[in-house]
Nucleic acid binder design. Structure first.
Lengths: 342, 342
DNA sequence: CTGTTAGCGCATTCAG
DNA sequence: CTGAATGCGCTAACAG
């Protein structure tokens, strides 16, 4: 394909019989320049539709004004909200965003980092893949002093800033709410155990149980791979259990929805026989029937905060001292747990 | 923040007392080089953790290996699927992706294009904002010979390649299905009239009606701004109409879901009293109750096809003759229209 | 087999 | 007030 040639300063200079540096000065409105010359150049630039080559500028100043973002998947509503917040924030502050998805793969994640770093991004915003259990690639980034921060899927092993929601408290809120509704046999469907959020949310679940005198030994934790098949199997397992659970708390909404479908197929009434709750407040959760109790997790704001903080660090508005931002969660009680309906 | 210094060829050259060009040759495995020298350089590069500076390479060859993508919004599942397909495809072919969202704003769209072009993207994939009714900015791109193609939200006014689904046929399928179910008073909720997809889908709706002897004068078209408030108002309006509709076909799933909520509030049985259908097959559609009849629109594949085609054009695997890719649609009949349930 | 030169587009320093 | 020279990192052409 014929590729469009971009007008350069050189071409403007030639047409006007001035030097390139004069053009450069005119275009950045340098005061030490004859007004007429300046005017002629600026007008010519406009008429030729001149656009500065950001690549060249970046190379010169060794700053690309581009942020790299890595998320496990783009199609999840939560992550696309994050990206939306990051993108809007970056754009407002004169930065562009390069986006990669790891597809929940550790190897992809490493490869993504490599490419973004080679592309000279000024900083990285990373949300770890499910597979990521070793953090050497992040340690390398840290050692090479490449600015980056983590959001949502984070690790505490590397001393960089993090943005998360208060996973533990959110899970506590849900569990506490179920207990208040009279449930005492609450199953918790967790994701893979090494996941930061699995640990945190399980912690909140156990804490709430403890307050009602239910020990960890009496807790009911199930581990899902978080795919539909795994979710359904666990639902079946829970139903077959003797002394069956009277409530199910799924670590993320999609799991809860899968479970809901199984319960409905089996004709089990929600919440009368089994109450059901999720986490994240996906758009789907409000429209399923019964509507799903969940915890809202402000994805867009997380993206904004993460991007603003990283840019603050880059622009040296704040120090590069690692900070941990923990966003509040809000319980959204809906019909899937409310035994007395409104 | 202290910014990590990237190792350059110059530094490797200095350490080994060779010239930069020798380093360059070694790193790209040039045959005309003493094996020992090559080996020494390669090892040194590895030990210093050398990464080529893609910016510098891009500047040299005037190709950035980056594609620009503009979508109306990132959080829509359909668009994030597109992006996912684009990103995966680009990555496989050695390209990176810079993403912008127009937030459905014409001005933003223009601004996004400007920034991406200044960033020297090799090509653009654009899905137009709702507000975009003038196409001069695209004409400019075309005149400047900047490679770009459009997907989903397209216009026929600019002679570049397009990737769309068969909107007309999809709408025809839905309407035909509703007619087969015995509905004869089918309301169609359209988006803004200038939208390409509004026109196409309305066309399919009318075509199916015509086959059943229902004239355009007897058709029932409502125009929504596609926000929740507007959707609900139209739902109310349809319900108040004398000779009330017995089916509602909404141009996109979210509209159908909003309408469904109104119908449920009013205690109207779906599909017995009013059948309801959407378009796109959002994840939500399968889990609402009753499950929503819709048309599947393969977002990920659209992204793949769009990216592959643009890259084919860039790599001159295909000519830059504009092509129009029209993807097939599949009717997904669910309980919201099936009067005889399975 | 390897070094020197030159240039991608831009902006800054140094000389007028 | 303006031009020439320099360098960001890399590679290709040209010379040994």
């Amino acid at each position: 394909m014929k590729r469009g040639h971009q007008v350069t300063m050189k071409e403007i200079a030639k047409k006007l019989n001035v030097s390139v540096s004069t053009v450069s000065r005119a275009l950045k409105d340098s005061p030490e320049l004859h007004p007429d010359t300046k005017k002629r150049i600026v007008e010519m630039a406009k008429s030729m539709n001149y656009q500065p080559n950001l690549l060249a500028q970046s190379l010169r100043i060794s700053r690309s004004k581009v942020l790299g973002v890595i998320v496990p998947e783009l199609t999840s509503h939560f992550f696309s909200s994050n990206i939306s917040g990051i993108q809007d924030t970056a754009y407002k502050r004169g930065y562009n965003v390069m986006i990669c998805q790891s597809n929940e793969s550790y190897v992809q994640e490493i490869s993504n980092i490599r490419v973004l770093v080679a592309s000279q991004v000024d900083g990285l915003l990373i949300s770890l893949s499910r597979e990521t259990k070793s953090y050497q690639h992040l340690q390398d980034l840290y050692d090479r002093e490449i600015p980056f921060i983590m959001f949502d899927r984070v690790t505490e092993e590397i001393p960089v800033s993090r943005v998360t929601v208060d996973d533990e408290h959110g899970a506590y809120q849900v569990t506490h709410h179920l207990l208040e509704q009279g449930c005492r046999k609450i199953a918790f469907i967790s994701g893979p155990q090494d996941l930061y959020i699995s640990k945190k949310r399980k912690g909140g679940y156990l804490k709430a149980l403890a307050e009602y005198g239910i020990s960890e030994a009496e807790s009911r934790v199930y581990i899902s791979d978080l795919n539909q098949e795994s979710n359904r199997q666990i639902a079946y397992k829970i139903l077959e259990e003797e002394n069956r659970a009277d409530a199910i708390f799924a670590m993320i909404d999609p799991v809860a929805v899968d479970v809901m479908l199984v319960l409905k197929e089996k004709g089990i009434r929600i919440p009368e026989e089994i109450a059901l709750a999720g986490f994240t407040n996906n758009p789907t959760s409000s429209v399923v029937e019964p509507s799903l109790t969940t915890v809202s997790q402000p994805g867009y704001e997380m993206g904004q905060i993460a991007a603003n903080h990283l840019l603050d660090q880059l622009d040296e508005i704040v120090s590069d001292e690692p900070k941990s931002f923990v966003l509040g969660t809000t319980l959204i009680a809906r019909n899937s747990t409310l035994k007395i309906k409104i």
